[in-house]
């Protein structure tokens, strides 16, 4: 540890010497089984520390200013808030029972939380620490996506098999779209014109066009095929889209691969082999790297986004679930 505290400022100094100074960011990984959060330096890919994250930490996100880390402590039935510098818990937020995944508004004021046990989406005010609304959705809500204009929050319900479009002005559901079995994740493109919903058991990603008024139209479903891998194990979970919309990355669970999809043609271009049971994904802010959580190999894989290659794996805690990277 002593070595590390010396070498870190040095790394920083070296980075500052480079032509385009890149400040090191930190990736926070929630370890569902270990009940911990692992902190990884996204410059050196060294583990900085691991700290207690509450009981069964899953969904994980960060405030827009990068100072606060929010963790869905599912078995504690609340959201724990940590300081991203000191790693000390600075408070908790009411979340409703069994929070699993959430999204945060760009001003950091609202958390939209899926409550798996209660068929609800809970809207929590992060400043006042109060629940603003509870929206009844389908059975086993999980995936949460937010439109770039923040007028819509999309929730996916795993047993109802729908994407529910919640209007953030009145917290009412305005649209429902049936998708394939067990939808896990919803992701808008940066221009808000497309939405992707992954169906873990259905084995597909539903693609929706989004009209200017927010209304969705299901246009197609992306399917996957890998020689030598049983189709049953191609289970899409995490989805991320590059800012320019050119590439879509889909984590394929027990297939141990991340699919690379062309944003224009929606064709699968490649499958990148990563760790075992890959679920969630996060870009570094410069979009140079994509991180994957691999629950059965207890590591994260670092993918070079431009090269579309896995370049490194970093051991984290037990059964990593979610990942988020500090903003610049």
């Amino acid at each position: 540890m002593k070595m590390r505290s010396v070498s870190r400022p040095l790394t920083l100094a070296l980075a500052l010497l480079a032509a385009t100074p890149a400040l090191a960011n930190k990736a926070f990984v929630s370890n569902e089984r270990g009940n911990t959060i692992t902190v990884v330096d996204t410059d050196t890919w060294e583990v900085i520390t691991e700290f207690p994250g509450g009981n069964r930490p899953r969904g994980i996100t960060i405030s827009p200013d990068g100072t606060k880390l929010y963790v869905c402590a599912s078995d504690d039935n609340l959201v724990r808030v940590f300081d991203t510098e000191t790693y000390k818990e600075i408070g908790t937020l009411p979340s409703g029972p069994d929070p699993e995944l959430f999204v945060i508004s760009s001003d950091g004021k609202h958390l939209y939380i899926a409550n798996e046990d209660d068929n609800l989406v809970t809207v929590t005010d992060t400043e006042q620490g109060v629940v603003l609304a509870e929206v009844p959705v389908g059975v086993e809500p999980e995936g949460m996506g937010i439109s770039p204009d923040e007028k819509w929050v999309v929730n996916t319900s795993e047993t109802t098999n729908m994407a529910h479009f919640i209007d953030t002005s009145d917290y009412k559901i305005k649209h429902n779209v049936l998708v394939d079995q067990r939808p896990r994740y919803a992701q808008y493109t940066a221009d808000g014109k497309r939405l992707f919903v992954s169906s873990e058991i259905g084995g597909t990603v539903s693609v929706m066009d989004i009209a200017p008024d927010g209304a969705p139209t299901l246009v197609t479903k992306i399917e996957f095929e890998v020689p030598g891998v049983l189709p049953e194990w191609l289970q899409p979970v995490g989805v991320k889209v590059t800012q320019d919309g050119n590439r879509i990355f889909v984590a394929l669970g027990p297939a141990n691969r991340v699919a690379v999809i062309d944003g224009e043609s929606l064709e699968v271009l490649d499958y990148i082999i990563v760790g075992q049971r890959v679920w969630q994904l996060a870009f570094t802010p410069d979009e140079k790297y994509l991180l994957t959580t691999n629950g059965n190999s207890n590591d994260i894989t670092v993918i070079d986004v431009k090269a579309e290659k896995a370049i490194k794996s970093v051991q984290v805690g037990q059964q990593p679930w979610g990942v988020v990277v500090t903003p610049n």
Binding site: P136, K172, I173, K174, H175, N176, V177, L178, A215, P216, T217
Partner: peptide, 19 residues
């Protein structure tokens, strides 16, 4: 509950179509 949801049906139908 029902009277809140009924107006939503129109929107649902718009998306789900004939099905």
């Amino acid at each position: 509950m029902r009277y809140v949801l009924m107006p939503l049906l129109a929107a649902v139908l718009a998306v789900l179509g004939a099905s």
